Simulated assay, not measured.
Amino acid sequence: MPERSIEVPPELYPELAVPGGLGEALAREAVRRGRGRGAEPLDPVERYDPAVAACCARGEARFAVFATNADEREFRIEISADSGWLWGAFGSTDDLAVVDAILHAWREGASIEQLRRDWTLLAASPLEAAPPGRVVSTAWRLTLERSPVIRLGDAELAEALYAQPALRVFFPFPSHGEFSLLSSTADPFYEEVPRAVPTECGRWDVVLLRSPWSPHIPSRVLGSRLGAREAAALIAANIPPGSGPAIEGGWPQPPPQRQPQPSRPQ
């Protein structure tokens, strides 16, 4: 798979504007803090420009750090378990010194449990680790970067949906080949925007599903056998008034209770 080109503003990451990028920046930070192991180079991350991503291994475990947020300064940390299981610990910080400290502890043999005790910024999933107000943008960034630590949908459709600015405020939620855009980032999920459903011919139907919150609106197909860009444009054109942006966490309002039907006389 080709390397993904990611442009990050140098004013956000002045440390990366040198040969060697993020890996070299971390090595210099370690030396500055008197860590002898800082001279050990970090490896590039597959499919990423070395300027914005670096990693190192400890047996089957891996420590990776990314500087791919072009909107805000953020170093995103991913640490896999000793077994190689990807979902070990995740974190986000704007301080390269914090990354260096966690990396040093990890290199010295600290377990996932110990790291998460010592640094509360580390969490069990990348979305739990996202700073407040950035869960949706983190989900989109990981989706577009094709990160293996998040559920991934069709790449072409994901790019087409993100290309519609009105859709970026919703939480991307691909599942079973379909692609939903949700108004909440956790269960209970709330879906008010039409979703894209794959067809046998490799194209997309755009479907508005009946919701427990609006049972009076029946499910219906808005468009059939569309290309990715056509489907995304149709979804954007059918955002219900007043919808979005997605809230962080589960939808706070329970669906309305069905009114009991009067019993028929026997």
Rank of each mutant, 00 (worst) to 15 (best):
143 T>Q: 14
127 L>R: 04
147 S>C: 06
133 G>Y: 00
221 V>R: 08
186 A>Y: 02
222 L>K: 06
135 V>S: 01
135 V>Q: 03
215 P>T: 10
188 P>M: 05
164 Q>M: 12
223 G>S: 06
207 V>W: 13
154 D>H: 06
232 A>C: 08
222 L>D: 06
118 D>H: 09
181 L>P: 07
139 A>C: 03
208 L>R: 15
234 L>N: 04
193 V>C: 11
220 R>A: 14
138 T>Q: 05
175 S>F: 13
166 A>R: 10
186 A>N: 05
149 V>Q: 01
197 V>H: 12
229 R>D: 15
172 P>Q: 06
205 D>N: 15
211 S>L: 09
164 Q>F: 09
131 P>G: 05
238 N>L: 04
195 R>H: 14
131 P>H: 02
135 V>I: 14
234 L>G: 05
128 E>T: 02
166 A>W: 11
235 I>E: 04
228 A>V: 07
134 R>I: 01
124 A>D: 14
211 S>Q: 09
177 G>M: 12
139 A>P: 00
130 A>T: 04
177 G>K: 11
229 R>N: 12
233 A>L: 00
192 E>Q: 09
158 A>C: 12
117 R>C: 10
160 A>Y: 02
185 T>P: 01
221 V>E: 07
158 A>Q: 06
174 P>C: 06
155 A>G: 06
227 G>A: 13
242 G>H: 12
210 R>M: 14
187 D>N: 14
223 G>Y: 03
137 S>M: 03
122 L>N: 05
133 G>R: 00
176 H>W: 14
153 G>N: 03
185 T>F: 00
242 G>S: 11
240 P>N: 10
217 I>R: 15
179 F>C: 03
164 Q>L: 14
204 W>M: 01
242 G>R: 10
161 L>V: 10
205 D>R: 06
171 F>P: 02
141 R>A: 08
190 Y>K: 13
123 A>P: 00
194 P>Q: 05
120 T>V: 12
190 Y>F: 15
178 E>G: 08
223 G>I: 08
242 G>M: 12
217 I>Q: 13
166 A>D: 10
220 R>C: 09
189 F>M: 10
233 A>W: 09
166 A>S: 10
143 T>Y: 01
222 L>H: 10
126 P>H: 06
219 S>T: 15
133 G>M: 02
165 P>T: 07
206 V>S: 04
125 S>H: 01
201 C>A: 15
135 V>T: 13
151 R>I: 12
179 F>S: 03
170 F>M: 14
170 F>N: 05
161 L>R: 01
128 E>W: 00
171 F>A: 03
